[in-house]
Amino acid sequence: MYTAAGLAILITMVLAITRTLLGPTVYDRILAVNMFGTKTVLIIAVIAFMSGRTDLLDIALAYALINFIGIVAVLKFFEYGEFSRGGRGRP
């Protein structure tokens, strides 16, 4: 069962990385990379289940928590970074 799940996730990862390589804009790459990241969390969880070591789930959990901070940082970067000149996007 986990084999099937793992294979499906791996196929998705291959497709996502195709888009990472194709581009064309940097945002396409980031979009694909973001999807890739979620799938990596998922595959870590699947590996944990496959090998029966469910304590490995903590890694997926840690990344899910850290990911949240990362996204807030990205948003802040676009909200108050170099694009904020001229007051655009400020509340």
């Binding site: 790459r29 990596t40 969390v41 870590i44 590996i47 070591r53 304590d55 903590d58 840690a62 990344y63």
Partner: peptide, 27 residues
């Protein structure tokens, strides 16, 4: 962003190699 995914993938590799604590730190 790509660096972040690179690190996450290494965390995945560490997970496969059963090095949970290293993977944890890497993630």
């Amino acid at each position: 962003m790509l660096f972040s995914i690179f690190s996450l993938l290494s965390a995945g590799v560490f997970t496969v190699m059963d090095a949970a604590d290293v993977a944890f730190t890497e993630a």
